[in-house]
């Protein structure tokens, strides 16, 4: 049995923490399905990166950031829900992506394939995951108020449009980071399932954030380890474990 490279382990844990934190606000904002669909926006970016022989992570990140800005702009203009707009953008992105990425690379992108990570990539991933986590923790009060009532948030001096864009970007970065382990298809679940478990079990915001981080860490670390032993893609194993935690959480009345 190969033990996981400590560097990889650290990145893996940092991404799980970011996913757990971002997920809490995604779940509370009821953008869960949008979250799932959102991750597919990465696909054309990955495809293009492969065509131009760039790091797929860069391609995914670029596509996701472009997607977030597009969704945010349309939302501001039309008063359509994030969910509806994401639905449109994601289907188009998936269609475009299927042209640009093919074969084994596509399967890796869809289901995750942790491999040897270069030092630069690991460093970048770690920094990005820390930045996302810091954003959610530092802005949690503003995120909470804007979620509860936009009027109250605006009257309290919060710039809702900027906050919304920042959150979508944090979300996009998290999806791009998780791509390597969980894949595009299932990354939405790593963001949503731990937070859903936490929503069921917690009674306060800090409780929810803590439980969500714990559930995301458990599924990611245990999942990667099992996948490594069984020599199979890590994404599905991670998501199945997260799903298991969700069913366990149902035991609580």
């Amino acid at each position: 049995m190969r033990t996981m490279d400590p560097r990889e382990l650290m990145v893996c844990a940092a991404v799980a923490v970011a996913a757990g934190l971002v997920g809490c606000f995604a779940v509370m904002r009821r953008m869960t399905l949008a979250a799932d669909a959102f991750s597919h926006v990465a696909l054309p970016g990955i495809g293009l990166a492969l065509v131009f022989k760039l790091n797929p992570l860069l391609g995914a990140l670029f596509a996701l950031l472009a997607g977030s800005v597009l969704i945010w702009a349309i939302e501001g203009k039309t008063r359509l829900s994030t969910e509806a707009i994401t639905g449109v953008i994601f289907s188009v992105a998936l269609a475009v992506g299927s042209f640009t990425a093919t074969g084994e690379q596509l399967i890796d992108a869809l289901f995750g394939a942790p491999g040897n990570m270069t030092g630069t990539e690991a460093g970048f991933a770690l920094l990005a995951a820390l930045a996302v986590s810091a954003f959610v923790l530092l802005q949690r009060d503003r995120l909470l108020l804007s979620l509860i009532s936009s009027e109250v948030a605006i009257a309290s001096g919060i710039n809702i449009a900027n906050l919304q864009l920042s959150f979508l970007i944090a979300f996009a970065v998290t999806v791009a980071l998780g791509m390597r382990y969980v894949g595009v298809l299932l990354m939405g679940s790593l963001i949503i399932i731990p937070a859903t478990v936490a929503k069921r079990l917690a009674r306060s915001i800090d409780g929810m954030l803590t439980i969500s981080i714990g559930a995301a860490l458990t599924s990611t670390l245990v999942g990667s380890w099992i996948a490594e032993m069984m020599r199979c893609p890590s994404g599905p194993v991670i998501v199945i474990i997260a799903g298991g935690l969700f069913f366990l959480s149902l035991l609580r009345p």
Partner: peptide
């Protein structure tokens, strides 16, 4: 409110948020 009240959010959470902001 813009959302249902079924969230793991306490009165303390709300007041703390306003104090911070």
């Amino acid at each position: 409110l813009d959302i249902e009240r079924d969230l793991p959010v306490t009165g303390k959470d709300l007041l703390r948020a306003k104090l911070t902001i």
